[in-house]
Nucleic acid binder design. Structure first.
Lengths: 237, 237
DNA sequence: TGCACAAAAATCGTATGCAATCTTTTTTGA
DNA sequence: TCAAAAAAGATTGCATACGATTTTTGTGCA
């Protein structure tokens, strides 16, 4: 019952499927860190919370499990994922491989309208960085991820876009677990530089900046096995 | 009922979940082209076929839908996906972006045992190429895809490996729909060259060969809008 | 008090039922 | 004869029910 108030907040995307809407809600909650890694998501609870039967709740959890945001154990239930350091490395290795290419693709397709959208996105980022408090922090993480998703959408490859959605979501889990300084303030300026490269259609530069940007994010992590996810789990949190 | 004999063939992987086992079975059937694009997969039919309730069948179909192998329409059901030319291009664009990197990663981690596995894989490919008949053709396509999956597993990144599983599966659908010569015979020799590069730990070469290999596969496609998937669909096939 | 074991509660896995929606066939009217 | 409307049939969306498994609670015994 205590996750109720943590969840209901994101606007319900008018999706076709109810299960999808619930998945989106839960994903936002996980990405925003309103749901901590390890939190149990029981079918019944999720169901009553969103006022659907377990059938639908289960489908939503299954989707999240595919995205790697939720880990399900047979006969035990679903839990917000608790990525290991190794998993964290793989997430970032994947991003290093994919995102520079996405930046290049975006370079070749970016329109004036896209640039405007980027500027708006950067403004929002800046606003949250200026603010104080945990809510702003959450919004900042979210906005930072949204930048990368916006880029992926501009690149115009639906498949890669979906991969990126997964990678960005998992990244925010990783940052929640292993992040040192929270969010690198330099992230914002790097995003700005990337948009600049896009604007001047500098493939090469955009790709290089993106690679460095990902390196910086990962460098901010402390991937030594802290207190062990196992313990964290044993403590039921 | 007429898809029954087309499906029951793959060995049932002893998975924890029954839904997963069914998904694997269906995926193999789709990749092997025993199930043609557009084929309807009704929950009831799948259920009775595998002797489970619609609940479980539905879960399996949902998984396939996430992988892009099945398209589900609300209140209408699930169908083997019918990728558009644009989708096909995106599949290959994704592979061009990811697989050279995977080849590089594999280069850095490949062991003697891996090389042996590759050799075995290549042998199998060669055997199917030599054989005649539609069954051998299917096995050839499957084996060709398995080469890429083996490489992905050697690369040691579980996330990228899953992406590749999806991309390879979708590729075989695309080839089924738009392939010209069926399977490029040159594919086998290119695979052999790539293994050679791996063996001599030539990052650069492995990456380049992989890129060319993907280009060759894509070059064999005829992506002009043939008779339109819409028509194909309208004809209920 | 501490431990082992059994009963109870909670939760999951799956089958089944009913209403809603879509498809096909039949009927009706021009 | 053909087109449109209506009915029948099939299929999905979802809720609920029940057995199986896990977790928790409670009790007796050392």
């Amino acid at each position: 019952m205590n996750i109720a108030d943590q969840i209901y907040s994101a606007a319900d995307s008018a999706n076709q499927d109810r299960a999808q809407a619930i998945r989106d809600n839960l994903r936002d909650a996980i990405v925003d860190r309103r749901l901590a890694p390890g939190t149990k998501l029981s079918e019944g609870e999720v169901g009553t919370l969103f006022d659907v039967s377990r059938t639908v709740a289960r489908a939503a959890l299954q989707m999240l499990s595919f995205e790697g945001l939720v880990r399900t154990e047979r006969n035990r239930g679903a839990f917000v994922a608790n990525p290991s350091p190794e998993e964290a490395r793989q997430v970032f290795a994947s991003r290093r491989l994919i995102e520079p290419g996405i930046a290049i693709a975006a370079c070749g397709r970016v329109t004036a309208a896209d640039i405007a959208a980027f500027r708006a996105q950067l403004d929002e980022e800046g606003r949250f960085i200026a603010e104080r408090g945990p809510t702003a922090r959450r919004s900042e993480i979210k906005a930072s991820g949204d930048f990368h998703l916006l880029l992926a959408s501009v690149a115009g490859n639906a498949i890669l876009q979906r991969f990126m959605e997964e990678l960005v979501a998992r990244s925010s889990l990783v940052i929640a677990l292993y992040g040192r300084s929270g969010v690198s303030a330099c992230g914002h300026s790097e995003h700005t530089e990337i948009v600049g490269a896009l604007e001047s259609s500098d493939f090469e530069l955009a790709s290089r900046l993106m690679l460095h940007h990902i390196d910086h994010i990962e460098a901010d992590l402390d991937l030594r096995v802290r207190a062990g996810p196992a313990l964290r789990e044993a403590l039921n949190f």
